[in-house]
């Protein structure tokens, strides 16, 4: 019996499928200019890796509510995450923020990830360092989960991080060694 085109193509696709990464969701590389070589491709399972723009000569962080309902956030030092969470909550954004040591990451999954990037919760601001969050992008039962890799809170030694939106409960961050996974990119 001859093998049909359908089955031969299935074989080809199976071989091709064996060469790609089947991580649950794509990890995007942080913007290159903000990433140290060692941190490239930090494993961000089921989340979108971002580089959060930083400012050097300002308070540790700033949360500003804009007239259009969005919230502008600037992080200058990776310190006092609980305080930042509180400030964000006051501005209408439920968030969980973890600053994790370099080479470590929070165990995944931390909850039910909301697919991205259709609902990309962070927008980079054109005119100033920092990023903008529209609270409307985050549903009532959803939480913005930001994880930044840092070295003793020093943003200069950061290698990016990840942002996710999780529906329902968010597991607290259990530190595990970061795996540096490859991505299949064309």
């Amino acid at each position: 019996m001859t093998v049909s085109f359908r089955d031969k193509l299935l074989e080809e696709l199976r071989a091709e499928a064996a060469t790609v990464s089947w991580e649950p969701l794509p990890a995007r590389r942080p913007a290159r200019h903000l990433v140290t070589a060692a941190g490239l491709g930090a494993a961000v399972v089921a989340a979108v890796a971002v580089a959060i723009p930083l400012m050097w000569d300002a308070p540790a962080f700033a949360v500003v509510k804009n007239s259009d309902g969005t919230v502008t956030v600037r992080i200058n030092e990776f310190v006092r995450p609980k305080e930042l969470e509180k400030r964000l909550r006051e501005a209408g954004v439920r968030a969980v923020i973890d600053y994790v040591p370099y080479g470590q990451t929070c165990r995944e999954p931390r909850g039910e990830n909301v697919p991205q990037p259709e609902r990309m919760p962070l927008r980079h601001t054109e005119d100033s360092p920092g990023f903008r969050i529209d609270p409307k992008d985050i549903g009532p039962d959803e939480t913005l989960v930001i994880q930044m890799h840092s070295a003793n809170g020093d943003p200069a030694k950061s290698n990016g991080g990840s942002v996710a939106v999780i529906r329902g409960p968010v597991a607290s961050c259990e530190l595990v060694p970061a795996k540096f996974t490859g991505e299949d990119r064309e």
Partner: peptide, 16 residues
Amino acid sequence: MRLKQVEPASPLARAQ
């Protein structure tokens, strides 16, 4: 905090 495992809903999430 205990979490229930969430199966990926996408029909494209696994090779099979």
